Computed example of a mutant assay.
Amino acid sequence: MNKRSLFAVSVLLAANLAFAADAVPGRLQPVTSGAVTYLSGGIGQDESTAIQQMAKNYSLELEFVINASPRAEFTSDVQVKISDASHNAVLDTVSKGPFLLAQLPAGRYRLEATKDGKSKAQDVTIKQGSHQHIMFEWTE
């Protein structure tokens, strides 16, 4: 795909994501940082339901959980850094809720999630037209 086609696809995707966000409650608004459009949130039933419905429109879905007793709990305020195969940061943000959705171009990425000074990392390959769901879990 040439740069002009990639740009057209990116513009179309951003328009579709912005249109979908009109139906999302409150603070759930997509943000574009460089070449990445992302959305984070999921606090409360309405936001959680809305973000889970939108997840299929993004190539990457991150979920953040703390394994607590007697059951696991969602968590927010997770520092998220996504780097490409050349170790360049393509996204560096803090999640506003237990979910972060990111629209990434096809390629290999390193995901780093940090909560209360404890970091977790995972590699992921994004394929065009695919959806990856990754859960990061911390213990209490």
Rank of each mutant, 00 (worst) to 15 (best):
R110M: 14
F99V: 08
V90R: 01
T114H: 09
M135N: 13
V31T: 02
G41S: 03
R110S: 14
K115P: 01
H87Y: 12
T93W: 00
A50C: 06
R27K: 05
T32R: 04
S10I: 14
F64Y: 03
K56P: 09
Y109S: 05
K3R: 13
I134K: 03
I43W: 04
S76Q: 12
Q122Y: 09
L17K: 01
N88F: 05
R27L: 06
L17Q: 06
T49D: 13
S48E: 12
D92R: 03
Q122D: 09
P70T: 10
V80Y: 00
R108L: 08
S76N: 11
N57L: 08
Q53R: 15
V9K: 13
V36Q: 01
V94C: 04
F136G: 01
N88H: 11
V36S: 12
S48C: 15
K96T: 11
S59Q: 04
Q52R: 09
L104P: 01
E61T: 07
K81Q: 08
A68G: 12
L17T: 04
L111Q: 12
F136P: 02
V24G: 11
V36H: 03
E112H: 13
T139P: 15
Q132P: 08
G107Y: 11
Q29V: 07
A8Q: 13
A15F: 12
K120Y: 09
H133F: 14
S10C: 08
T139K: 13
Q103V: 11
S48W: 11
K96Q: 09
S33L: 07
P30V: 08
S40T: 06
N57H: 13
S5K: 10
N57K: 12
G107D: 08
L101D: 07
P98K: 12
L101E: 02
Y58R: 02
T32D: 06
L6Q: 13
D77A: 14
